[in-house]
């Protein structure tokens, strides 16, 4: 079984407008932009991975915290995709994350992310009890996204340790301190979230050399694999005996929506690894899933066929260290 954990889920609301005319001109007080299209989808890294897996026909259980009416909408969205849901209900409202797609800039968007409701101590206890039961019967756990208010920075570390006790492979897909804290729990795959700056701890990860160096540090601390976005259409994977360069042969003008592409990469990769495929095939499939998702207007690719169609545009190169 695969479990995905989204501790601070969101309702992802996307708007498409004809033009924004940003920035506001001098003397202008406000502006109304009319959306010719909008879409509401359940969101959050773990949830996105579950949805991607479900679209490929693979089951998973999504766990985390939900609140209020927005939480009900998110739950409904998750269930309608064929994902099993085992969330803990808390007070308040699950957050809404808005993305305004900028027609003037291909695939770029202006985002407003809410913080999310505070998780009370009792809800954390209930979640941990459910998590322990679930993990005992799982093969993979995906820990993804920002921590909500109310949870300590070492929470992912705690969850990764519980998973390690049951020999469950953990995929860690987050950033900042929570990522740093959790690496020592020996996660199977670390995919740092560097959307807010190409830095992990105090290490820069802009060039390939920097990524390899940061990767080796993470591996020394217990991680088995380290996967980082290198540029818009490429990633680098560092394992103890190799460095893999992953590239999508695509022009930026073909990209429509980059939101969720990272999660499609993790989902696609996990899908093939669970089926027993070798790492190289799994990486290629993951990148194809990310590419197919980026070319779609919606967040995540809808079909297996769309992913397969991209496979020949993915290059996977293995470099063994000197």
């Amino acid at each position: 079984m695969i479990i995905t954990v989204t501790l601070n889920p969101a309702l992802d609301k996307t708007y498409w407008v004809d033009e924004t005319h940003l920035p506001l001109s001098v003397g202008e007080e406000d502006r109304i932009m009319r959306a010719h299209r909008s879409l509401s989808e359940p969101g959050g890294k773990g949830i996105n991975v579950s949805v991607l897996l479900a679209r490929l026909g693979m089951e998973s259980v999504a766990m985390g915290f939900l609140a209020g009416h927005t939480g009900q909408i998110v739950l409904r969205g998750i269930l309608s995709e064929g994902v099993s849901a085992n969330f803990v209900w808390i007070e308040g409202e699950t957050r809404t994350n808005a993305a305004l797609m900028l027609p003037e800039r291909q695939a770029a968007s202006l985002k407003v992310h809410e913080e999310g409701p505070t998780v009370p101590a009792r809800a954390v206890e209930i979640f941990l009890a459910k998590y322990r039961h679930a993990v005992a019967r799982a093969e993979y756990v995906v820990l993804g996204g920002r921590l909500p208010p109310g949870l300590p920075d070492d929470f992912y570390h705690q969850l990764a340790l519980i998973a390690a006790q049951h020999n469950v492979k953990t995929v860690l897909h987050t950033g900042g301190f929570p990522l740093q804290e959790a690496i020592s729990a020996g996660p199977y795959l670390v995919k740092p979230d560097i959307r807010e700056g190409a830095v992990i701890g105090d290490e820069a990860v802009s060039t390939e050399e920097e990524i390899i160096s940061a990767g080796h540090h993470a591996l020394d601390r217990g991680a088995k694999m380290f996967l980082v976005s290198h540029h818009v259409t490429g990633d680098v994977l560092v394992t103890k005996d190799a460095v893999w360069e992953l590239d999508a042969r695509v022009t930026l003008s073909e990209l429509r929506n980059l939101v969720g592409a990272d999660d499609a990469l993790v989902g696609g990769l996990l899908y093939q690894l669970k089926k027993g495929e070798d790492l190289e095939s799994a990486l290629k499939f993951g990148m194809a899933a990310a590419l197919a998702s980026s070319e779609a207007e919606e967040k995540l690719v809808r079909s297996r066929q769309a992913i397969d169609a991209e496979m020949e545009r993915i290059e996977v190169r293995k470099r063994t260290p000197r």
């Binding site: 259980v61 739950l75 269930l79 064929g82 994902v83 099993s84 849901a85 085992n86 969330f87 209900w89 009792r122 009890a129």
Partner: peptide
């Protein structure tokens, strides 16, 4: 079926 696994434990207090 609805794959909503919302549940309580045997020890969960009635208020919860």
């Amino acid at each position: 079926m609805r794959k909503d696994l919302t549940s309580v434990d045997a020890e969960t207090p009635i208020s919860e």
